[in-house]
Amino acid sequence: MLLLAENPLNESPLTFPVLECIHIIGFAFSVGTIALVDLRLLGVTMLRQTAAELLRDTRLWTLGGIVTMILSGLMLFSSDPDMYYRNASFVFKMICLALAIVFNYTIHRSVASTKGPSMKGKVVACLSLALWGSVVFGGIFIAFVNQEF
């Protein structure tokens, strides 16, 4: 019965693009603040602060961004779940997203909280940037791949 119900989000042609804009702002907050910590770990910028300080400063904004992007993402997904489910790029994106979030709240957090610059910090920063970058690539390619799963 639930399957027969029409998704109210599909009623207006404006819903999808508006949700996409919210999605973009959400990931500018989350990925942007995570990247700030990563760039500090790499010694690129914000050298007057430690990575641990930056992590503490941005933690709530990162979380807010992640929640925003997941909620808007779920709504975008609900507009055409069948298409997304079969889309190879979407599946790739979801795997990267799961890895990125788990990585962010385990290894990334503990390494960024430890004092002093280290090789480990740089490796972790590169991995974090690569994971979040892959999520973005996976998202864009959804509209460009035809292979179905």
């Binding site: 990931f27 500018a28 907050f29 990925v31 942007g32 603040t33 990247a35 941005t58 973005v136």
Partner: peptide, 9 residues
């Protein structure tokens, strides 16, 4: 994502 984040912050 990265630099828009910096502008926001």
């Amino acid at each position: 994502a990265i630099f828009g984040g910096m502008v926001l912050v």
